[in-house]
Structures are given as structure tokens and as C-alpha cells.
Design a protein around this nucleic acid. Structure first.
Length: 882
RNA sequence: GGGAGCAUAGCUCAGUUGGUUUAGAGCAUCUGCCUUACAAGCAGAGGGUCGGGGGUUCGAUUCCCUCUGCUCCCACCA
């Protein structure tokens, strides 16, 4: 069989993905096996794959594939999120391009467009995940606005409303003028933004006309002065004592407003004199409440000045700010301007500057319901990985505020509240039940007279049900109802892999929902991935153009290569600084595996040959090492140290298997291999492939299918993960000593310019087990390993020590005695320093008495070892000096 | 403004309740090799007073304090 020297992933990846799909390996049904469940953090339905998804889903796939191979019934549920704001914004933009204005079409028409858009663009991301190798159960693909899932959302709303946890009220909310909707506190991102502090004169009112005297206020928002309800000073501010009880006039519109006192004002900021604009600032709103101030809202939905402003009506808030500045300046009200950096809130979705705005919204009471969700994390029933997020989680859960759940959008689940003509409302799962409820209030009312609340629910109000509703959409809203078969089998899910940014948005709320409806946690472990950044540590973003296209990346390096590249440098919770060299390393690893396979499969077998001694030793060593490594890897997985698990495998395969094992058993040129060695090697290879499979699914399948004859329908992905047998520490350490001897001999060759082809003799004194001689001979091209006692006096050559074993390589005429002495001297110096620190410990009585016995023992061993070495080195030195 | 975290080799990071041969890995670097699996490779080597300072301890990369420098989260002093 001709196998090309370079592995070409494009030849194998799609082939095997098809094969897996066709055989239904990804699909899970409840059965007698233990379930292992993961629900995907549903990406935005209109999203495209970015590097963050790659990392996140690679991790999930590794966990899922491994669980499957460990004999569990693994189920990874994929799906997408309707992402109301983001999707609606995209649809609005698309309609605009077609010349359609959202405000000119009906809700139904708009939704039709939105669904069309979803059908066309939704799920691209899921297609891309297939390229990555994601072993999702595609038959279970869900969407947060699937009819059943939407029903679950509605039922949940009704349930919490009836429980008294959902209420409607006028509150100050974060208004996104671009998205035309309220957003939750969590969706507001505060950024340090350079702005200007304007100092403006407010004249003291003399019965409605300006007097000579004035005060100066400082504001960053001069365009809102028309909405001022008061000017506020600190009650203790001595500068303004004479102003108490007076009134001032708003510049330009000459509206009279009172001067009030409130200790909220800081005397040392600005002028100590604050304008109060209850409609457009949350603090001002609260002060307004305390002082019973009227609220004047001068902005419309688009954050343009409205009639209440009296001037500049229709102007956008930012252009109005400019205009007002000019007007104030021209009429002498503007005293000065100052550059000032302030924290401005931006909408996470649209990046518009958030406008604090008073409006009527739906809210969910959180504090009570959050308590149990805090407890399960504090009690470690749910593990956060890494656990540094426990603190953050607690902090948030303890200071949780009510959740604004209504959005002034059309794309999403419409709030199931119906208004009677008299303004009263009923909440019910559908219009029929709503009518029934309404009739209890107004018996002769008809459905036509009821008007449903036009708002939709926050997207997170649907995704918090995700781990429940993908299995049993009937359950949310009905905690008393028994879970269906699927839910009781798959729930609680096992691991959730997600980003720390949505710990509260999503994770915390899923815990709340899980507790409420299933009286159980929704998952056991939450693995929080870091952010993928570029080499310079910058977040990857479209505007910076620093994000590679994941699909192209997979095309050039193979999905396997990309997966390895991403995982090698990503410990949980740590950001990963992405660089092409990482996926290159991943690709190289695939190639290494490929070539190891070429080597092994190219050997001709000799059925009559017996196993050579060195092969027998190698097989035994590698067998032990394999078991040891399995244990190490299991341990890494237990701690969710995926990159360590992968690195262990990487070294096991590359260094131990290829560089040592295969080099050892490789038949000499023109020779054939014996069957025992050959078969052992294939078995090792098979095991290694299985261990590697969760990380690099494609190439491992390709080779696994070839290594032995396989039936159709067999696959590495449903094979068993190798388990550790008992292994001997001694076998491994004894081999390590011979390795060390070999490396030393090679190093001597390199430094002395001796060809690897030239045979050398090696003298040994110490612990090198005789059965390792054949290893050393073969790997270091040694003709004879002799006991050092047979060494001739005064023989010239190079010596070295490994652990406490002394080695000597005779090199006639090739050694410089002084150089050798120098080497020994420096080694001695090092050892003596070492011995000194060990001795200082051992001579310290407090150490002996207070350190644990094992530590003391170890120090004693260190001392004796160092002593042996020093003695041997001194002997060598003496000999050389002769 | 409040809180949390990080600082170890050129880079990315391990270092598991303070002791494991006076700090490890991968990558990168350097040297020698086209050795019949692989130059996307092989063999070998160098490289760190564990951010600075102080303290606790028999012993500190590990615990405490402080300084410096980053990062993140929370928080609308206009």
C-alpha cells in the first residue's frame, strides 16, 4: 500500500463525519447505561463560527467523545438561540436594504421576514460545527423559539406571575435607542469614555425673572437641562447657605425650579451643585422620588428631543448637545468646559449609548429565588471550574436585583398578558384562557376587546430553561408534574462548557430554573473557558480584523490540527493567546501520527523470527508506561485539565512511542520483524489511537480503521477507552536510567564529533540493570557494556553520572584531560552546594523534630545519594590527575 | 469608587493543602544531521537569583504584609 508522506486531512475528515452520521453514532436514546449529558450553549441563530466557539465546542466534544468511549450513553444536544435583539436588528437592517421600514409593516409581516431569515441563515454555525467534528446528536437539534420550547417559556411566565414573582411596573430602565428596547442591567457595558463637563449658570429666580445672582452647575448632559426638576446642593455646603429655599431658572427656557438639599451631592465634585433630571438619570430619579419632584421626559424612543423640551424638538440627543452648547455660549450661560472621563453605558447588542429611561416594564423578583441557586454552588453541588469564579458568583447572587424581562421587540416570545379595555390585565398561556379569566372580571367581554401586550420576553428568559426544555418542554411551569422519560434520564446534565461572561446571564438563571422546576441542579460541573485573544492579547473582533476564519483554518490545518492547537494552550478559565504556530503544531502532530503509522504498516513480518531481547524489553517497558499514562490522563480529566491530558498524550506518542519505542524495535535495514513485537506494536498503536481519539477524532478513525480488518459499522468512536493495568514503577525507572545513559553518550558523540556510526564501549558502575544493556547498545551504538572493574587504569575517555550510576566511555586520543577535569569540578561544586543545603536541614534539630518523617527520610536519601556521587567524582578526578 | 485574580525560561503556561535530588513542560532559539516513517523531521545543547521589598517558619515559587505592573468583574460623583 502506498501511503503519502504527508497527511492530508481533506481526504479523510468529511468522509468519516459522514460515516459517523450514517451509522447514527451521535444519536442517543435513554437506555440502561449511565447517561452523560451536555447541552450546547446555544449560539445565536444568525451567528457564524468564531474562535471562541471553536475552543468551546472542541472542549465539549472531547468530553463527550471520551464519555462515550468510557461506556456511557453520551448525549450532546445542539441548538441555537433566537437572540431577540441581535436577530431583530439584523432583520431590520436587511429590510431596510430592501427599502422596507419596520414601522410600516405589521407584526405578522415582520415575523414572516424574520422566520425566512432564520431559515436561510440560521444553522450555518451548526454546519460549521460539523466540520470541527462535533459529535452532537443532530436529531435533537433545538431552537429556543421552537413551538414547544416557546410554550415552555410562556408557561414559565404564567407560573411565576401566578406565584407573584413577576410584576409590571414603571421603573428606570436601560433604554437602547437603536434597538428600540429596554435591556437588562447585565446587557449594559460600561466603558470609560471621554466626555465634557459643562459649567452652566442658573440665575436665581426673582418671581420668575432672573435676578443678578446665579449659581453654577456642572453637567455632562446639557441637552437635558430642559428636563430639570430641581437644582440640588448638599445640606451642609456652606457656600450655598443663602440659596436655601430659593428657586432658579433653567437657562434658555426660563422655567422655574426649586433648589433642594440632598446629601447625595458631593461637595467636592464639580461645583457642588447638581441639576436634577429625574427622567434621564437613575440617581436623579431616586432623588426626585425623595423630594417629590415632577418628572419631565424630554426624549422620545429614538432619544430625540420631544415637545416637552420646548426647544430643539426633533433633534437627536447628541446633535442637541452641540446645539445647546452653542446656544448657552451665545447667551452667556456657559462658563467653561472641562474634559472629563466618565463611565458611559453601552448596549451590549447594538453598542448604542444607553439612555436611562422611565418606562413601564415587566420584572421578575430575584432575591428570594436566587438563594437556593447560590447555595448549590457554595456547597459544591455544582463545581465551577476554575473555582475562582465562586466568589464572583456569590457576589452577584447576593446583590441580585430584579430582572427586567420585557423587550420592546417582535422577535421572541410575546408576553402572555392581555389588557382589558379598562386597563386591567390577565395573564394566561393563551388567548382562550385569557378570555376565560377576563370574563370573570367583565362577564360580557369578547376576545376582540382584549389586547395582548406587544412586548416579547428577554432571550435569557427562554435560554434559562434550555437544559430542561430540550428534553421535556412540558415541564417548565409545572414543577409538580412528573418529568418525562427523557428528562428523568438525561437531567441533571453533567458538564456545561461556557464563557464566564454569561455566568449570570445564563448559568445562574439555569440553576434557578432547575431548582424551581426540577428541584435539582441542571449540571454538575461548569467549565468556564477563557477568551480567545490574538498574540498581542487583544480580543478577537471583526473591527480589528484579528480573528482568523475558523473554516479556512480547518481547511489548511485540518480540524484535528486546529483542535489540538486550541487545546494545547488552554487551561480552564485562562485566556488563550491564539497564534497560527499552535495549530501548526497540531497539524504537525497529526503528521507525526500518520508517519508512525506508515512505518509500522510498512514492515514485513517474519513468522519464524523470535523476539529479540531489546524488543522484549521495549514492549514490556512501553506496556507499563501506557498504563501509567492512562492513570495520569484520567487524573487530568478528573480535574478538567484538558490541556495537560493532551500534552501527556502528545509526549507519550511523540517522545516515548516514536522516538524511543519504535526506534528500538525497528527492524534493521532489509530485515523483517518478528510477530510478537509486531503484534504488540499494533496493539499499542490501537490503544494510543483510542486514547487520542477524543482530541483528534478524524485521523485516529482513519488509522484505526486500517490498523486491523474492521467490519462495516465499527468505529473507534464507539470503541472502549483503554484502561490501566497494574504497572511497575521499577520497570519504568530502570528504562529511564538507560535512556539517560543513551542521551549522555549521544551528547558526548556530538561534543567530540564522533559519528553515530562509530561503535563505542561503555563501562558502568551502579544500578543499570543488565537487561537494559541491550537497549543502551542499540540506541547509543555501543558494542559492549562492561563493568567498570574491567576498565584499564589510566584509560582516556569521558565519564558521566546518571543518578548514582557512573558511566565511562573510552575515547582514545579524543579527550582533553583538562576539559574533563573542569567538567568534574563544576559537577562537584554543584553537588557540594546541594549537599550543604541538605546537611543544613538535617543538622537542624527543629527540622528533624518538626518535619514529617517522609520528608526527613527523603533528605537522608538525598544526602546519601549526593555523598555517593561526590565520592565517585573524586575518584574519577584522582584517576584523571594521574 | 468597591471586589477578585494574575506576575515563574524569549513566548504560552504547569508547579495539587510549605519539604520530592538547590524549579518543569511545550513552542521558539542554538549546534550537528536530507540516518531507507516523518525537514510538518532526527539527535544534542543552552536558557529562570520564580515582579521588587519585608515578614512568618527549621525550611517559602508556595503562607502573610507592602510596593510596582497588568487583567477581569461589579458600581451611572453630575
Amino acid at each position: 500500500m502506498e501511503i503519502p508522506a504527508k497527511y492530508d486531512p481533506s481526504q479523510t475528515e468529511s468522509k468519516w463525519y459522514e460515516y459517523w452520521l450514517n451509522n447514527g453514532f451521535f444519536h442517543s436514546e435513554p437506555n440502561e447505561k449511565k447517561a452523560y449529558t451536555v447541552v450546547i450553549p446555544p449560539p445565536n441563530v444568525t451567528g457564524v463560527l468564531h474562535m471562541g466557539h471553536m475552543l468551546n465546542n472542541t472542549i465539549q466534544d472531547v468530553l463527550v467523545r471520551r464519555a462515550r468511549m468510557l461506556g456511557k450513553n453520551a448525549c450532546w444536544v445542539p441548538g441555537t438561540d433566537h437572540a431577540s435583539i441581535a436577530t431583530e436588528a439584523k432583520v431590520v437592517a436587511k429590510l431596510k436594504e430592501e427599502g422596507i421600514d419596520k414601522s410600516n409593516i405589521s407584526r405578522d409581516e415582520f415575523l414572516k421576514h424574520a422566520w425566512e431569515w432564520k431559515e436561510k441563515h440560521g444553522g450555518i454555525i451548526l454546519e460549521q460545527l460539523r466540520k470541527l467534528g462535533a459529535s452532537c446528536d443532530w436529531e435533537r437539534t433545538s431552537f429556543t423559539m421552537d413551538p414547544m420550547l416557546s410554550k415552555a417559556v410562556i408557561n414559565t411566565f404564567v407560573y411565576f406571575y401566578n406565584k407573584g414573582l413577576i410584576y409590571r411596573g414603571v421603573r428606570m430602565v436601560n433604554w437602547d435607542p437603536e434597538g428600540q428596547t429596554a435591556v437588562s442591567d447585565e446587557e449594559v457595558i460600561h466603558r470609560d469614555t471621554p466626555s465634557t463637563l459643562y459649567y452652566i449658570k442658573y440665575y436665581i429666580s426673582d418671581n420668575g425673572t432672573p435676578s443678578q445672582s446665579y449659581i453654577i452647575i456642572a453637567t455632562t448632559r446639557p441637552e437635558t437641562i430642559m428636563a430639570d426638576s430641581a437644582v440640588c446642593i448638599h445640606p451642609d455646603d456652606e457656600r450655598y447657605l443663602n440659596l436655601k429655599g430659593k428657586k432658579v431658572l433653567i437657562p434658555l427656557i426660563n422655567k422655574e425650579i426649586p433648589i433642594i438639599e440632598d446629601s447625595y451631592v458631593s461637595m467636592d465634585f464639580g461645583t457642588g451643585c447638581l441639576k436634577i433630571t429625574p427622567a434621564h438619570d437613575i440617581n436623579d430619579y431616586e432623588i426626585g422620588l425623595r423630594h417629590n419632584l415632577p418628572v419631565t421626559d424630554i426624549l422620545d424612543n429614538y432619544a430625540r428631543l420631544n415637545e416637552n423640551a420646548q426647544i430643539l424638538v426633533g433633534e437627536d440627543r447628541f446633535s442637541a448637545r452641540k446645539a445647546i452648547e452653542n446656544m448657552l455660549n451665545e447667551s452667556g450661560y456657559l462658563i467653561k468646559k472641562e474634559q472629563y472621563n466618565s463611565q458611559i453605558g453601552y448596549s451590549e447588542r447594538t453598542n448604542a449609548v444607553i439612555e436611562p429611561r422611565l418606562s413601564l416594564q415587566w420584572f421578575m423578583k430575584m432575591s428570594e429565588i436566587a438563594k437556593p441557586a447560590l447555595d448549590v454552588v457554595m456547597e459544591d453541588k455544582i463545581r465551577l471550574i476554575p473555582d475562582k469564579y465562586r466568589n464572583t458568583y456569590r457576589h452577584w447572587m447576593e446583590s441580585v436585583k430584579d430582572w427586567c424581562i420585557s423587550r420592546q421587540l417582535w422577535w421572541g416570545q410575546q408576553i402572555p398578558a392581555w389588557y382589558l379595555p379598562d386597563g386591567r390585565l390577565v395573564v394566561a398561556a393563551d388567548s382562550g384562557s385569557a378570555l376565560t379569566l377576563a370574563k370573570e372580571m367583565v362577564p360580557q367581554i369578547t376576545l376582540d376587546e382584549l389586547r395582548q401586550d406587544p412586548d416579547v420576553l428577554d432571550t435569557w428568559f427562554s435560554s434559562w430553561l434550555w437544559p430542561i426544555s430540550v428534553f421535556d418542554p412540558e415541564k417548565p411551569g409545572f414543577p409538580e408534574r412528573e418529568a418525562n422519560r427523557e428528562l428523568s434520564y438525561y437531567y441533571p446534565t453533567d458538564d456545561l462548557v461556557t464563557a464566564p461572561e454569561i455566568l449570570f446571564f445564563w448559568v445562574a438563571r439555569m440553576i434557578i430554573a432547575g431548582n424551581e422546576f426540577c428541584s435539582d441542579i441542571p449540571f454538575k460541573n461548569v467549565y468556564l473557558t477563557g477568551t480567545v485573544r490574538d498574540k498581542l492579547g487583544r480580543k478577537m473582533s471583526k473591527s480589528l480584523g484579528n480573528s482568523p476564519d475558523p473554516v479556512k483554518l480547518m481547511e489548511s490545518y485540518g480540524a484535528d490540527g486546529v483542535r489540538v492547537g486550541m487545546l494545547l494552550c488552554s487551561s480552564a478559565g485562562n485566556d488563550i493567546l491564539y497564534d497560527d504556530s499552535q495549530v501548526e503544531q497540531g497539524r504537525n502532530f497529526s503528521n507525526k501520527i500518520w508517519n508512525a503509522y506508515r512505518l509500522v504498516k510498512g514492515w514485513e513480518r517474519d513468522p519464524d523470527a523470535t523476539i529479540p531481547e531489546h524488543s522484549a524489553v521495549a514492549v514490556n517497558w512501553f506496556d507499563n508506561l501506557l498504563s501509567q499514562s492512562i492513570e495520569t490522563i484520567n487524573d487530568h480529566f478528573e480535574k478538567f485539565r484538558l490541556s495537560d491530558a493532551l500534552m501527556t498524550l502528545y509526549k507519550l506518542f511523540w517522545d516515548d512511542f516514536c522516538a524511543w519505542y519504535l526506534e528500538l524495535i525497528k527492524p534493521q535495514f532489509g530485515k523483517r520483524i518478528d510477530l510478537v513485537t509486531y503484534n504488540s506494536t499494533l496493539q499499542f498503536f490501537d490503544k494510543l489511537l483510542r486514547m487520542l481519539h477524543p482530541f483528534i477524532p478524524f485521523i485516529t478513525e482513519e488509522l484505526w480503521q486500517n490498523i486491523y480488518e474492521r467490519e462495516d459499522g465499527e468505529s473507534i468512536m464507539i470503541s472502549q477507552m483503554p484502561v490501566a493495568a497494574s504497572w511497575s514503577e521499577k520497570t519504568i525507572s530502570s528504562f529511564n536510567l538507560s535512556k539517560s545513559a543513551i542521551v549522555n553518550v549521544r551528547s558526548i558523540r556530538q561534543s567530540k564529533g564522533i559519528s553515530p556510526k562509530e561503535e563505542l564501549t561503555l563501562f558502568v558502575k551502579g544500578d543499570l540493570s543488565p537487561d537494559m544493556y541491550c537497549i543502551v547498545k542499540r540506541m547509543a551504538n555501543i558494542s559492549n557494556v562492561c563493568d567498570i572493574s574491567s576498565k584499564e587504569e589510566g584509560m582516556s575517555g569521558a565519564s558521566f553520572m546518571s543518578e548514582t550510576t557512573e558511566f565511562f566511555v573510552p575515547l582514545a586520543g579524543l579527550t582533553d584531560v583538562n576539559e574533563e577535569l573542569k567538567k568534574i569540578e563544576s559537577e562537584l561544586k554543584h553537588l557540594e552546594g546541594f549537599l550543604k543545603t541538605v546537611n543544613s536541614k538535617l543538622s537542624n534539630e527543629k527540622f528533624i523534630s518538626s518535619a514529617p518523617p517522609t520528608v526527613v527520610e527523603n533528605e537522608l536519601k538525598k544526602r546519601s545519594d549526593a555523598g555517593i556521587k561526590i565520592e565517585k567524582l573524586n575518584q574519577l578526578k584522582q584517576e584523571l590527575k594521574k
